[in-house]
């Protein structure tokens, strides 16, 4: 079949014309009979959905949105965020080849949980540019079957609210932190990425947090864009709880 190839390409020739409407959307009529095109352009018969032309209102919406973007958001080279993803007062960012490890701490677990929220969100935008709009304050509950899954669900909830409702939480105020049947062993506890290592007390119920989240809606005109967080991971997740200090380590996928 080698001889089928000719050095002259059938494509890429300048200003090759084929009938297609202005917006480039509609299926082309079957007039280009060069091989490969026949099958592609004769739709409708092959069971593929018939194409509908892009109507003008659709086009107008897109054009308007593009114009809006162009007007609102034209950093020459990207404006400097001012924050370099460096440590806040109660959190820092640690090294990892492809991802980033969050480390937050506080005088107890409740405070550590509160601090890891700005730790994550500050990576996505500059929290110093975020204000608290009291009308947007949200109250919700998060639950898990052990501490690791609670921490996972906790961060996942804030990520979800950011990417679905564009809600940036500046401050998370924990109203209630419920741990079922506290075990006597309150010394250091590391779960080392394991979700399954449950002790007796934990097995009996759910961990829940009720939180009041304060912040505002993310807008490109006001808030600088940081790095996108794809997901929270259990990878090397650590929860250390000691007398007077609690530490959390979470790797986020970015």
């Amino acid at each position: 079949m080698e001889e089928e190839w000719k050095p002259l390409p059938r494509r890429g020739t300048k200003k090759r014309r084929r009938v297609r409407p202005e917006n480039g959307g509609e299926g082309a009529p079957c007039q280009d009979t060069q091989e490969g095109h026949v099958k592609a352009t004769c739709l409708g018969e092959s069971g593929q959905p018939p194409q509908k032309p892009l109507d003008t209102s659709q086009m107008q919406q897109v054009t308007a949105a593009v114009r809006r973007r162009a007007a609102e958001h034209r950093p020459e080279r990207g404006e400097d965020m001012g924050n370099d993803g460096v440590a806040g007062e109660f959190y820092e960012y640690l090294d990892h080849t492809a991802d980033v490890q969050l480390h937050a701490w506080g005088k107890d677990l409740t405070h550590a949980f509160e601090n890891i929220v700005p730790c994550m969100l500050n990576y996505m935008t500059d929290l110093s540019k975020v204000d608290v709009d009291p009308s947007q304050t949200q109250t919700f509950e998060v639950e898990g079957h052990d501490l690791s899954s609670l921490l996972f669900a906790w961060l996942d909830e804030f990520l979800f609210r950011f990417s679905s409702e564009a809600f940036v939480c500046k401050e998370a105020k924990i109203l209630e932190f419920v741990r079922p049947l506290e075990n006597a062993n309150t010394s250091s506890k590391s779960t080392g990425g394991a979700v399954g290592k449950l002790n007796e007390g934990e097995r009996q119920g759910k961990y829940t947090i009720k939180v009041q989240a304060e912040g505002e809606t993310f807008t490109l005109t006001k808030h600088p864009q940081g790095t996108e967080v794809k997901a929270i991971t259990y990878s090397a997740m650590q929860i250390h709880e000691n007398e007077g200090r609690a530490d959390l380590y979470v790797i986020i996928d970015i």
Binding site: G25, E26, A28, H37, L43, Q48, P49, L54
Partner: peptide
């Protein structure tokens, strides 16, 4: 459900794109 067949139906893609 439809993937690029949706884009095609809505007019955002060309038939050749799917190929």
């Amino acid at each position: 459900e439809m993937g690029m067949d949706w884009s095609l139906r809505e007019g955002y893609a060309w038939a050749e794109d799917n190929e």
